[in-house]
């Protein structure tokens, strides 16, 4: 039980090569955060160590340079375990003008007794594109989750686009029909869309809702797909449905996000 607390900071940066294509400029792993390039413009997070465990502080910095595109996925879900104190995972992201980031890792699973804090700060230049999926699973099968507090902040062109916090393991909110209901997973996908104020008068974007999932056009240039589900498979299915609706409904100014969609084969 005398495990040293982990402090890790991994860095990922893109740049343009001579031919104007995206190349991975910096790929600095820091175990347990290990990054592997798996395709041009695509990087997988490979966890080379258990956890995060209580007390660990992990940080990932992502910078997507002007005109480049980057996809970040992960090999497996992240299992957050208890330990000495609170664990922290912070992600700082900057997506420059004309750049595209797809961030779609596997879910974060909260094991019993964990005490986890996640913070994500995404800064988007005015015409940057983003597809950001986040899934939290409340414990492994049949397990009561520990505690988790996540905060996601995205600004676009200097204006707040989406700010949301989730608290899991809070007696005030757990099992509340107003918050998660009977769900065991919560997930959301933020997809940027064109600024409604710009361009010719476009139809107001309509929200859509189905069992356990809603497609919610934000006040700013983005749409949030928000889902609740009993398990991770159902959660992904619901999010994928919502994600597909975003590209359909935004049909008027042919959607940049259509190209952002992960291949259906990989995301059933």
């Amino acid at each position: 039980m005398t495990k040293a607390l982990v402090r890790a900071r991994a860095i990922l940066r893109t740049g343009l090569d001579d031919r104007g294509l995206t190349r991975i400029e910096t790929i600095r792993s820091d175990p347990p955060l290990t990054l592997r390039q798996t395709a041009p413009g695509e990087v997988h997070l490979v966890s080379t160590g258990a956890g995060p465990l209580g007390g660990d502080h992990l940080r990932l910095d992502v910078e997507v340079a002007e005109g480049t595109s980057l996809t970040v996925r992960s090999i497996a879900s992240t299992l957050v375990l208890p330990g000495a104190g609170r664990s922290l995972m912070e992600i700082h992201v900057y997506v420059a003008s004309g750049a595209t980031l797809v961030f779609a890792p596997e879910p974060t699973v909260l094991a019993a007794g964990c005490d986890h804090r996640m913070t994500t700060a995404v800064t988007l230049a005015a015409d940057a594109s983003l597809f950001w999926r986040e899934e939290i699973v409340f414990g492994r099968h049949g397990e009561r989750p520990g505690r988790c507090h996540s905060r996601f902040d995205a600004t676009a062109g200097g204006r707040p686009l989406l700010r949301q916090e989730f608290v899991v393991g809070d007696p005030e909110a757990d099992g509340s029909p107003a918050v998660f209901g009977t769900a065991r997973c919560v997930g959301s996908t933020l997809i940027t869309t064109e600024t409604p104020a710009e361009g010719p008068k476009s139809e107001p974007r309509e929200a859509e809702v189905a069992e356990g999932v809603a497609v919610l056009p934000l006040a700013g240039p983005g749409t949030l797909v928000s889902a609740l589900a009993a398990d991770a498979v159902e959660l992904r299915k619901r999010l994928s449905w919502g994600e597909s609706r975003v590209s359909v409904q935004a049909g008027s100014p042919a959607r940049a996000t259509v190209g952002l969609r992960p291949p259906a084969s990989r995301f059933p």
Binding site: R163, F166, A178, V179, A214, S226, L228
Partner: peptide
């Protein structure tokens, strides 16, 4: 400022 989300309330509202 706090930004605590309530996904079930969002679904109910829609």
């Amino acid at each position: 400022l706090p930004a605590h989300a309530a996904p079930a309330l969002d679904l109910l509202a829609e």
